[in-house]
Simulated assay, not measured.
Amino acid sequence: MDIRLDGKRALVTASSGGIGFAIAKELAASGAEIVLNGRSEKTVNAAKERLLRDYPNASIIAAVADLSNANGCDILCTQVPTVDILVNNAGIYGPEDFFETSDDTWERYWQTNVMSGVRLARAYLPAMQQQGWGRVVFISSESALNIPADMVHYGVSKTAQLALARGLAKRLAGSGVTVNSVLPGPTISDGFESMMAEEMARTGKSIDTLAKEFVMGNRPSSVIQRAATVEEVANMVVYVCSTQASATSGAALRVDGGVVDDIV
Rank of each mutant, 00 (worst) to 15 (best):
T43V: 10
L51F: 06
D74W: 00
Y55K: 12
S40F: 06
A46G: 10
C73N: 03
L67Q: 00
D66H: 09
N71I: 06
A47D: 05
A70N: 01
G72D: 00
K48L: 14
N45M: 11
A62K: 01
I75S: 06
I34M: 07
A46I: 11
A63H: 06
S68I: 00
N57V: 09
T43W: 04
R39A: 05
N71G: 05
R53I: 07
P56H: 09
N57I: 03
K48C: 14
L52W: 11
A46R: 12
A58K: 08
D66Y: 03
G38T: 06
N45Q: 14
R39H: 05
A58E: 09
N69Q: 01
I75Q: 08
P56C: 10
A47M: 06
P56T: 09
V35T: 04
I34D: 05
R50A: 14
L36V: 08
N57Q: 15
C73G: 03
I60W: 09
R53A: 13
V35R: 01
S40A: 08
C73S: 11
S59V: 11
L52Q: 15
L52E: 13
L36F: 12
R53D: 12
A46Q: 15
G72W: 01
G72I: 00
R39L: 01
A70D: 10
N69E: 08
V35W: 01
L76H: 05
G38L: 07
S40N: 13
R50C: 12
R50G: 09
A62H: 08
R39P: 08
R50K: 15
L52N: 13
L67N: 02
A58Y: 10
L67S: 02
N37A: 07
V64H: 05
N71A: 14
N45A: 14
L52A: 12
V35D: 02
I60V: 15
I75V: 15
D54N: 10
Y55F: 15
E41D: 13
N69M: 01
I34Y: 05
G38C: 09
V44S: 09
I60N: 04
V64Q: 04
R50N: 15
D74R: 14
N37E: 05
G38D: 08
E49Q: 15
L52V: 13
D74N: 12
R53Q: 15
S59K: 13
R39K: 14
A62V: 04
E49P: 09
S40R: 15
R39Y: 03
A63L: 07
L52T: 10
V44R: 03
K48I: 13
S68A: 11
V44G: 07
N37T: 06
D54C: 11
V44H: 07
E49I: 13
N57W: 01
A46S: 14
G38N: 11
E41G: 13
N71Q: 13
S59M: 04
E41S: 12
S68D: 11
I60A: 10
N37G: 03
